[in-house]
Design a protein around this nucleic acid. Sequence first.
DNA 1: GGTCGTATATTTTTT
DNA 2: ATATACGACC
Length: 758
Amino acid sequence: MDFLDGLNEPQRQAVEYIEGPLMIIAGAGSGKTRVLTYRTAYLIQNGVDPFSILLLTFTNKAAGEMRHRIETVIGGQAKNIWMGTFHSVFAKILRFEGGKLGYTSNFSIYDTDDSKSLIRALVKEQNLDDKVYKVNLVLNRISNAKNRLISPEQYLASSIVEQEDRYAKIPMMGTLYKSYCLRCFQANAMDFDDLLYQTNILFRDHLDVLNKYQHKFKHVMVDEFQDTNVSQYLITKKLAAVNRNICVVGDDAQSIYAFRGADIQNILNFERDYSDLKTIKLEENYRSTKAIVAVANSIIARNKSQLKKDVFTSNEEGEQIEIIRAGSDNDEGRIIASTIFEARQKDGLKWSDFAILYRTNAQSRSFEESLRRLNINYRIIGGLSFYQRKEIKDVLAYLRFVVNQNDEEAFKRIINLPKRGIGDTSIAKISVTAAEHKVSVWEVVSHINQYPGARGGASIENFADLIKSFKLLVEVEQKDAYEVASHVAKASGLVRELYEDKTVEGLARYQNVQELLNAIKQFVDSEENEDKSLSTFLQSVSLLTNADTNEDPNDRDKVTLMTVHSAKGLEFKNVFLVGLEEDLFPSQMMLQSQADLEEERRLFYVAITRAEKKLMISYAESRYQFGRLKSCEPSRFLDELDSTYLKMAKTSGKKEISSFRPVQKTGFVEKSTSPSAAQLIQKPQQNTNYQHVPSSDFKQTDALQLKEGQRVEHQKFGFGSIKKLEINGAERKAHIVFEKGIGEKVLLLSFAKLMVIE
DNA sequence: GGTCGTATATTTTTT
DNA sequence: ATATACGACC
């Protein structure tokens, strides 16, 4: 098989080892996708039926690309391989088999917004305080439980969990979890976690089904194995139990999804589950220069929990990593936009050779502005995706409700949209009536006259008739997704409302809806899709990833802007890693434990290893947030990088600092009271023991008012004492040991707001 | 009962 | 900046 010629020894081994459990540890840039593609092609050439290969990827796009690459090696058979994300593959299986669990094949998929809205409603119904039972917290706990396969009953029965929740002052958490699951079930809906959780239940309780798929899938392969959670792992393990042909590919150093349940232990413990496991390490990096690999290794080496690995490269030494220091986020945008502009000219590159990577989506703003100003083409991946826009979700909610009248969240969204005079009170009456008679909301709405408690008059009847007419199209006339959707969009009045809105935003919204209809048309016209029904379309839409939106092949030459998370698996000649500021990257939200710090470090590692030739890292000294400018300190990660490969590239002025208004979230704890008493005084008082040291008081030549050993308070980090002061020209840094468990921090004194305690 | 305007809280990453 | 909550007004 001549396609194997270009492979190095471990790669070739990995491709040819096709019987029994195999784990491939693939360092960054080591040709992982290549191995996986060739391995699959190799399997098929050795007589394995493509229908019996299950290849689970991280995004739908990765699946599509891999399918394409396999096709170029072995041809048309590639389209018969079962490939896709865990969520999409098992959603498909649940559509066939979900009846055994009490779901119909039309079940809705609740996105995060739907889940949140349901939780909000439940918290209200159960008279709980929404300041204590915060939606995100509750959703997180539910999601964690599901990902660890803890049922509501088990949750309620566990004394450990109960203690935890009592300690966290959310004792009703278990009840909430239970009612959340019940309501989802009644709505014939699954949330993202359910797609995996219910698959596990299905395989646990229906051995005939499990057996069927165990024999169907003779080879199971999992890409990005480091980012699977327990629930996903158990599914693959069960599926592979008969044939034992399981192959997982991953890199523990690139595990960056712990926040959604990914468990690095999966990869660290894999050997325990398969005693006859073969492990192959791919350690040669073909992507990046020596300098980039060295800097990446220097950061990841600090992590304790990891598999031993020695990533090296035979590539050229390459340029040093440039550190760019900007005055503000706008400044950062300007510097980077002009650097891109010049580098393209000088090095003869394309726009698409550049990527700007950031930690949070909100950071894209300043780069967009500066890129636009220089007429640089760019595209943004992620953020508010097309399918999350209000107008799109509105149309989709109609469609969802037409397919599944139990879908409560869709119902809530459309019942008074466009405004038809059915307000909160009427809706509440309807749901109370429904609960009283133990029937669905739709039952009440569609037979409103039979339920005297919820008389709502003509508008409710009209709504019911409208939905009934839509149902007719789907169920009786068997119209395809496009015909139904375009009719619904018009007849519901949504399109008319948008059309009448002549503002710029209104026009954009109108076009977005047209765009949605186009997408549905494409779905219907595509030969790959055999099932052109509305419910199939809805299912595929709700599982789309940010990376999945297909771009216009005609103008591909664009600078890419995205989060580090969505950059996983990609590579670019020149990478700008921006916003390297303390609390932003590493993220303040994230840092609660050593494990969290290590995950942020892995994220940093992922970002660095995206770069082939040139890496530039920037930070801003102040940044807009909630419309305010706040001060920032450079990230501790910069200190962790191997400094022999670094150079300070650009230092900007502080043009915008004149409008500086620090964000003061809290007041200050009065010194006489103990900090734990948390008696917050709204404003710092003049006659306290604090001395405010504002940045403007520091001048180049001034002796600092600060001394080593002195106790200070920082507006964000609390109390601390100064360990060391460093004065190098304009750089004035203070190493401060903070008391509240955040440890030592290095603050740039030109920006740190410190209160000196006398 | 519905809608409009004002006050308030929110800060992460994604299937 | 933006989304939600609540109170005043229609």
